[in-house]
Design a binder for these strands. Structure first.
Lengths: 206, 206
DNA sequence: CAAGAAATGGACCATGTAGTCCAGCACGCT
DNA sequence: AGCGTGCTGGACTACATGGTCCATTTCTTG
């Protein structure tokens, strides 16, 4: 028997509780450190419930990856709306840095962190994470495109490339933040990427 | 009994063979997927040898992290010497991108990949990886400082900050490369960070 | 060459873990 | 009320894995 989609509100809530518990444990102890028994206990659920809603452990981890993508991207929804000005970009960056400060620079980006653990192990999980990154990058690109439409960007600037680089700065900055336990690493990376936007010409300098 | 430093050349070679085998397996299957028995088999070594040279599994993984740091930083030694011109920086970037192409965009950065798996699990491993990143960043910074000394940088540019941002671009670009299986992600991120160098003024734009 | 130290082989143990199985419960529907 | 589907509890198994132990072989060195 493969996994089952919940057919009742109660079932759906149980399934979500499992994913939430698994996600917490994965963030605390890593993918390998989160045993199904730990998940079972934290979600207040029995073994059979785990296997009622998920085909196996990998299936659960894929669901965790998808949920992480949605949490990360969804959690920035309001900030995403103001990404069409440099000030809005800076406000968004400040929020990311502030979050890292409250987390003591631990954990990194949920998507990036899972990527390192799952990308080479489970193709399905990799695709979930790629999807999260795509949506994140799209939100940034949309903001830059609105700026371009208002003529606030260099005519040759490519919003797609700039958005990609900003996302890379986020991920790289978070990795440095995590390894060095210093949120300024993210701040600096984001400053650099955002500063580059108004100067970007789309053509490589000589 | 804790781990032992090898006292003979033979012992040292055995220890290194273990670390190399463990490193390969970790790259192929992740930290969690590399069992001591796998390592034992690949290194052509007995169980007692593992525990002769390493206190426990975590100790071995710390050694793997240290070796990865040294491989990554050491493997770029020649390129590091030419990091004092924009052309040298581009050549270095091209080499990193080319490497990803030959690897089919799999694996990401050994340091970054291990960071995601070990940073929150083992403080010792985290410090090893931080050390690798520090040396990497220092190499970039030294190149930029030589440029600054020749007056080729904006007088207010800060080589330390720029080097940090380039390293963030490497790590972020590699993460995107890995998740999206597309080496152009790294290329774009590095182009952006390197293009920013000659324009950097050290003060944030308004 | 003898003695001690380093290195090695591999059996063995304890345990944590993914996954199975089936009986029992809850609840909507007729 | 009673029936059926979805949901739940938890015992149980098979096995991989980390770690221990000790006997044996191989080096080194005086």
């Amino acid at each position: 028997m493969t996994s089952a989609q919940p057919a009742t509100p109660k079932g759906r809530e149980t399934r979500e509780r499992i994913i939430r518990a698994a996600g917490e444990l994965v963030r605390e102890r890593g993918v390998a450190g989160a045993s199904l028994d730990d998940v079972r206990a934290r979600a207040h659920v029995s073994k059979s419930q785990l296997y009622h809603y998920f085909a196996d452990r990998d299936d659960l981890m894929r669901a965790v990856a998808r949920a992480a993508s949605e949490d990360v991207v969804g959690g920035q929804a309001e900030l995403f709306e103001r990404l069409d000005t440099i000030d809005g970009l800076r406000a968004w960056a400040d929020a990311l840095v502030a979050l890292q400060q409250t987390l003591d620079a631990k954990g990194g980006c949920p998507i990036g962190s899972l990527a390192g653990q799952l990308a080479e192990q489970d193709e399905g999980a990799r695709l979930e994470l790629a999807d999260g990154l795509d949506r994140w990058e799209a939100a940034i690109r949309h903001g830059l495109e609105r700026m371009a439409a208002r003529g606030e960007l260099h005519p040759l600037a490519e919003p797609g490339v700039l958005a990609q680089n900003v996302l890379a700065a986020v991920q790289g900055g978070l990795l440095l933040t995590q390894v060095r336990r210093d949120p300024d690493q993210l701040r600096s990376a984001l400053n650099g990427a955002i500063d580059a936007i108004p100067r970007a010409s789309g053509v490589q300098l000589g």
